[in-house]
Design a protein around this nucleic acid. Sequence first.
DNA 1: CTGAAAGCGCTAACAT
DNA 2: ATGTTAGCGCTTTCAG
Lengths: 325, 325
Amino acid sequence: MAVTIQDVAKAAGVSVSTVSRAFSSPEMVKEETRARVRAVAERLGYRPNPAARGLITGKTANIGVIVPDLTNPFFPSMLKGVQARAREADHAVFLADAQEDGAEEARLVAAMAKQVDGVVMCASRMDKPLLDKVLGLVPLVFINRTVPGQPSVTMDNAGGMRQAVDHLAALGHRRIAYLNGPRSSWTNRERRKGLRRAERHGMQVTQLGPFVPRFEAGQQAADLVIAAKATAVIAYNDVMALGVLARLTERGVAVPAEMSVVGCDDIGFAAMSTPALTTIDLGGERAGRVAVDALLDILAARDGGRRPDLTAALIVRASTGPVQS
Amino acid sequence: MAVTIQDVAKAAGVSVSTVSRAFSSPEMVKEETRARVRAVAERLGYRPNPAARGLITGKTANIGVIVPDLTNPFFPSMLKGVQARAREADHAVFLADAQEDGAEEARLVAAMAKQVDGVVMCASRMDKPLLDKVLGLVPLVFINRTVPGQPSVTMDNAGGMRQAVDHLAALGHRRIAYLNGPRSSWTNRERRKGLRRAERHGMQVTQLGPFVPRFEAGQQAADLVIAAKATAVIAYNDVMALGVLARLTERGVAVPAEMSVVGCDDIGFAAMSTPALTTIDLGGERAGRVAVDALLDILAARDGGRRPDLTAALIVRASTGPVQS
DNA sequence: CTGAAAGCGCTAACAT
DNA sequence: ATGTTAGCGCTTTCAG
């Protein structure tokens, strides 16, 4: 095995506790000895074993993250935020992909429980019974999902939608369509709330779906939107919006001249489509950071409980424009 | 703290060793006692603490993965492969994002070393001195990067390029352009080797770049390709190819009628562009699986050393077509 | 087949 | 300021 605290102690001519302290509580050891110990440790290539440390301190300095699907372009930025904040706090990250399966999420939480101080659940799919199984195993923080009594950081889905609606209203649109995501999605419910803003503008809203939020569904939806005689469409997410765009192009419908399209999430490719996609940036990276903050607070018994909603921002690009008169 | 092996032992009226054996070496304990122990453990919600176990066995049942950039759409599928294979082998995954920085990679390896049995390095950016620092800390398996004496799984970049070139040749193209990725990239060097296949067809190849492999670079490159009078272009990766496509559309150059475009990696969005992108699928998910296999072999002293190159497959979609006569 | 006891590498009282 | 010692939760000889 590798070099242990014993080896360092022996080589430095001190006791193991001194070596331990030289690292964990430097102020408790004389400047001189500390320097010597550190030097010896460095020379030997000593690194404290976090597992052994965790066994006694009860803290692992690891945090877990569970996402429903790694290939969903919505998550990478969130993960990046988690990762970055975790690093700043000297914590390592355990990542797992639950394959859109709530039961798998529960299994993963249980598997991680002992090796992490807490876990960040991104857009968890777990239902009540599953939740009951894992709650209490380890501190949890939810992103984009509220669970009674559990800390969660939620993005301002409704506010983002309102901005999108206001934007379209300002452009003169009177008939818009909304492409629903999965019916069970908390996020989708929130977005519908924001959609009610349309009433204030006297706009007519056609609800389509629910759809499996994929590119193909967007293509399919595009034809429905045209048939509904809407002049603008807001999609559940960017991937679907991109599908709409593709199908519209295929059918020769000019965007934004004949149809405005708004997506959601501001995934990387939203800026790369033709035309570039107007979209709602929910602040995924920020959410990741905040979730880790909350977790850290809880662990420090600082009680980071409920965090304020993050602010959403409409990113206006080339896929939305004034309605044709 | 949670329920420990002691609690189970007491509740089941056996010694801790029996409980331990009931889980780790079931054949060593009588059928009847095993069942009882298991039942009690289940009732109490006992889960062995992997850290404590690892301390004694020297195995953590965790594997680490380091990627240069989580937001790079090339990696998710690879991660998915790693994740899936790890799960099958009952290993958890430690993920870290090195932010395209070799030094950070080294730091991460050191930080992970004690908590994982081995780490998979995806497209590592580490140079020789950095490598020397981390080699030996923990078993490493490299993906898309060869390091003398280290196990690595490489994708068939050259073979993929050859397929692309043959495809273009078959379509009658005589003048093609290649958009280089970063000069230091091992991957790019391999692709250039495959590009030599063009000589056999008597094709003229214009090398452009090196480019930072981004969408914007693709847009920039598109103009250069047109100026070079090439009728087809192969980009270092899909993101660049998508940039090329966007700029070509902007300039009114019809794809594939006037220009054929080939990407590389088969990222999710390659199928969603207009026109859908012909691309080289290097088999990222497969690579992830194979890397974990190799790691597992090494850990079991089965010596999984060098793995055969994975096979690349050209995915022909709508962005390539016969040359205009 | 099962139990007792000795650690794995480390930290945290408790001494000195 | 430093050393001694007792575990953290688990596996693994070594005895029965």
